[in-house]
Design a protein around this nucleic acid. Structure first.
Lengths: 207, 207
DNA sequence: GAAAAGATGAACTGCCCGGTTCATCTGTTG
DNA sequence: CAACAGATGAACCGGGCAGTTCATCTTTTC
């Protein structure tokens, strides 16, 4: 569709290469992944791989871009925003927690951080059609809810960011630093309800 | 003092090596740092370096451990906890934001994330004498403040985590994903006051 | 000042990896 | 069947890096 794709030859095994590359990249990161490993994982010869992609770096960018798009379209299912704020916010919090506790969310985050020097545009790309979308949707909802008198928020951008951060309480450190053992369903509901309660304590119209 | 230190020979240029290694590691990460670079940066021959440390991995662990300890002892200056909650919390928030916006905080975080596969114990070590200390101090303060009737918190651990997360709103994403340009003093105060206000809206005794 | 301990630097080994090449094989199309 | 494009794999190149070695130089110690 765009210029970047035109630079890259397509062929029968194009998809195989992308899938195998994503598998190895997310397992080993950019430096850790060897092109031989990728070719083996994709069930493709190294020569074939290099006939599609000029080098490892572009292959990585293509894979990451594809995954971000997939993620963006996948999570574009909206919420019914007319329900009570507790309901809407709990749903949003659940989806956010599910995401960054997911295998995918964690791996992408890891790679973004680890490769932020080599691929600064990668983090921006991921943010743009990931967290930024969620944030925009939240802000939209805040406007509607405020019009209905359900919420009262002066700095809606900050409120959205605060809500997202509240959803990470406890869980995020445990994941990133490997502390506190596996995360149970009870842990998740504790954090989610806590986030919603704290948020509504500040911004709830009935507060 | 402990077993690990006994395994490592000391010598005149021991400190030089550690300093140079830290410099290169925090600049280039673990994989990115070459032992030759470290030796050059430390003003020491490679042979000398290897006479102290059996391999690159142990050198890295020693450096990271030392930095974590230094950081832990450095930030052990307590807060006067009898002031009004707004004051105490604003002070705490400022210190937290300063930390994870600092060069050091960001680099250590990056390395922890990037090297979490190779060095899972590193993240735990960092958390133990970094965020965990701050959290414990906050929880202690919550107990005292609650006894004075200034705060009302049922789940104090969760509250401490929420407060820490609130301090990261907006700022964290911008740092990690390289979005939204440099962070101004106004950005910081906006987030800090917002965090304190939201926290007190939920847990403030006078709320 | 002499012996011992430590430091030097430069060369060297072995390994891994990114990228290239090429002769050969396979599948498709007319 | 013939022609052709794509796929193959194995060998190869060049470079970088971890780790070793060693003969020589410097510093400490007595």
């Amino acid at each position: 569709m765009n210029a970047a794709n035109q630079e890259i030859k397509r062929g029968r095994k194009y998809g195989q290469v992308l899938n195998g590359a994503w598998e190895v990249f997310r397992r080993d990161g950019f430096e850790g992944a060897s092109v031989d490993d990728i070719a083996r994982e994709a069930g493709v010869s190294k020569a074939t791989l290099y006939s599609y992609f000029p080098d490892k770096r572009l292959l990585f960018l293509e894979v990451a871009k594809g995954e971000c798009c997939r993620q963006a379209t996948e999570s574009s299912d909206l919420i019914p925003c007319t329900a009570a704020p507790v309901t809407v916010l709990t749903g949003a919090a659940t989806r956010m927690v599910d995401f960054f506790l997911s295998d995918f969310g964690m791996r992408v985050f890891r790679i973004c951080v680890a490769e932020s020097d080599r691929f600064p545009e990668l983090g921006r790309e991921f943010y743009r059609n990931g967290p930024a979308l969620a944030r925009a949707r939240l802000v939209d909802y805040f406007h509607e809810a405020e019009a209905r008198g359900e919420l009262r928020i002066s700095d809606k951008d900050l409120a959205a960011d605060q809500f997202a951060e509240l959803c990470k309480a406890d869980l995020f450190s445990r994941l990133v630093f490997g502390v506190g053992g596996p995360i149970s369903a009870a842990d998740r509901t504790r954090v989610i309800t806590g986030a919603v309660e704290t948020f509504l304590a500040r911004y709830g119209g009935a507060g």
